[in-house]
């Protein structure tokens, strides 16, 4: 997939009154990949997403798609799921999806077929003719997802798409996102469910207090942030402790001992010491989980 479908955010800066909520936010959402957008409440995720889709006009910064600023025609092909959700409460589910599709330029028949398929996909096939507000919140949420997909978007921007979904709907949602990504759609979604993000995402954007603190390939980011902590397991000697000024034992459990190395310490020295104590069953650099990363940046 070429970069012609890359969504790029560059230098987004915005203030509400005196409060700066976005400060030079810059990152890419690459086509064909799921990009997780992670940050604490109030970190600026929703404001960033609103700036991308054009609901909010930021004080400064640009959003481009394939290198071009987003035209109205491109904005109409964004599948957007707003944080506050939003559908017509008194309209029937299927009718509503068809209306939104038509407003976004889809033919009536095509929209009707897609709406039926999407509702079936999300297990709402039998609720098509029900008025929206008679559905449970979780089911309304599924309709909201369907609304974001009704016009076969070229870009997906989803604010907390997984919140309020049951595990089955979450799987459907995840499959849908991966399907879209596989078709070359850049997918950006925010979530507080970090395990899920870790499992699903190819790329990560971590934002804190309006500034991007890390962005890029998820695995590379974790590697980069790993520091110099090693887990060493010597089966015959659970009480083994490395000797030397550069080594400090952080903790010890059944899976071995966690050792922090300072800049002067040599990993090969650590391995050699362990081998002298007995057979080494595990020796490896500890990569932080997303939750740990998040804790670190949000502090």
């Amino acid at each position: 997939m070429s970069d012609s479908s890359q969504l790029s955010v560059s230098g987004l800066t915005h203030s509400f009154g005196d409060r700066r909520v976005l400060d030079d936010v810059t990152f890419d959402v690459r086509p064909g990949r799921l990009t997780g957008f992670v940050g604490a409440n109030g970190a600026g995720k929703t404001t960033t997403m609103r700036s991308i889709v054009g609901v909010l006009k930021p004080d400064a910064g640009t959003v481009t798609f394939g290198g071009e600023p987003l035209s109205l025609a491109v904005r109409r092909r964004i599948g957007y799921m707003p944080e506050e959700r939003g559908l017509y409460p008194k309209m029937k589910v299927h009718e509503q999806l068809v209306f939104l599709g038509r407003v976004l330029g889809v033919d009536r028949d095509v929209a009707a077929t897609r709406a039926t398929a999407l509702l079936k996909d999300f297990g709402l096939g039998d609720r098509a003719d029900d008025v929206l507000h008679t559905l449970s919140l979780g089911n309304q949420q599924r309709v909201q997802v369907a609304a974001a997909l009704i016009h076969e978007p070229r870009i997906l921007v989803l604010d907390e798409p997984f919140s309020g979904l049951d595990p089955i709907a979450m799987d459907t949602m995840a499959a849908r996102l991966q399907e879209s990504a596989a078709q070359g759609v850049p997918v950006l979604f925010s979530s507080h469910q970090l395990e899920l993000v870790e499992k699903l995402c190819d790329d990560l954007v971590l934002i804190n207090r309006g500034a991007v603190v890390a962005a890029g390939d998820a695995a590379a980011l974790q590697e980069e942030r790993a520091g110099r902590r090693y887990r060493v397991q010597v089966a015959a000697a659970p009480e083994w402790t490395p000797a030397g000024a550069g080594f400090e034992v952080a903790s010890r459990d059944a899976r071995g001992v966690l050792v922090d190395l300072d800049e002067t310490a040599d990993t090969q020295d650590l391995l050699a010491q362990a081998q002298r104590a007995g057979a080494v069953e595990h020796f490896g650099r500890v990569v932080p989980t997303l939750a740990e990363l998040f804790q670190e940046v949000a502090r």
Binding site: R50, V53, G54, V55, L72, R75, R76, I78, Y80, P82, E84, R85, G86, L87, Y88, P89, L100, V103, L104, A147
Partner: peptide, 16 residues
């Protein structure tokens, strides 16, 4: 109606 039900967020950027 669109503002109160927040449908406006879906429409405002995509529909003049």
């Amino acid at each position: 109606e669109e503002k109160q039900s927040r449908v406006v967020e879906l429409l405002v950027a995509a529909v003049p």
